[in-house]
């Protein structure tokens, strides 16, 4: 199987300047490999650094040490050291991320939020409405900005936006946390289909049932702790 993502000796410590330079070590010596068509679920107790690792993989957090190699086009790009515009290109073409909470431009309609992902890639936006409907966001809500939606609805909009472009690598932070059983099943099915297409997936998922359904293997993290 094609290697899609690999970290080598990845480390992350937060330095809190407003707390007298207090150091919070979260990750050290992380060596993770994810292949095409595989779903790796990050596991470990709260505070073990699962979200920090995921945000580092996306380039949202700056790695303190180590490399984050992502297969982008034909080559491996190191997210930890790449120029901002390269990271943006990797995010556009290769690396998708579904965060825990939806963050959008105020007053933009639900449909536009999802369709925009297709339009900016020069593709037909028609698929956006289909995917939203599949995630049980009915047509009558498509023209409304999601600000007034319930937590579960917002998460489904977030998932639609994350899945619509078909990135070869997907990072999913608690994709089913606030969903009911019916919608959980839809998301599990979408993840299965993505894997069949060869998408490499890294997920955080506390729901044991969903985890068992999507994970090919677990990647355990243990709290690093003890402030230096």
């Amino acid at each position: 199987m094609t290697l899609m993502l690999r970290t080598e000796g990845l480390a992350k410590t937060f330095t809190l300047h407003l707390r007298g330079g207090m150091m919070l070590p979260v990750l050290s010596g992380i060596d993770l490999e994810v292949h095409a068509g595989e779903c790796v679920v990050l596991s470990g107790p709260s505070g073990a650094g699962k979200s920090t690792l995921m945000r580092s993989l996306y380039g949202n957090y700056r790695a303190e040490a180590g490399r984050i190699l992502v297969r982008h086009g034909g080559e491996m790009v190191d997210i930890a050291s790449a120029e901002p515009r390269i990271v943006l290109a990797v995010r556009r073409e290769t690396l998708g991320y579904v965060s825990q909470f939806l963050r959008v431009v105020p007053r933009v309609s639900t449909l536009d939020i999802v369709a925009d992902e297709l339009i900016t890639r020069g593709r037909d936006p028609a698929a956006a409405a289909v995917l939203l409907s599949r995630l049980n966001i009915p047509r009558r809500l498509h023209d409304i900005p999601p600000a007034t939606f319930s937590g579960g609805e917002q998460q489904r909009v977030n998932l639609a936006r994350g899945f619509i472009a078909g990135h070869p690598i997907l990072l999913l932070d608690e994709p089913t946390a606030s969903l009911d059983a019916e919608n959980r099943a839809v998301v599990v099915e979408m993840i299965r289909e993505a894997k069949q297409r060869g998408t490499a997936i890294v997920a955080i998922c506390h729901d044991a049932e969903v985890r068992d359904a999507i994970a090919d293997r677990l990647f355990p993290l243990t709290p690093a702790r003890e402030a230096a």
Partner: peptide
């Protein structure tokens, strides 16, 4: 200086941390 979301979500400099917080 850096990627917008990186600087705002993981600010490195003391002044940026103050600004963001």
């Amino acid at each position: 200086t850096g990627l917008t979301d990186q600087v705002l979500d993981d600010p490195q400099h003391a002044y940026t941390q103050l600004l963001v917080s």
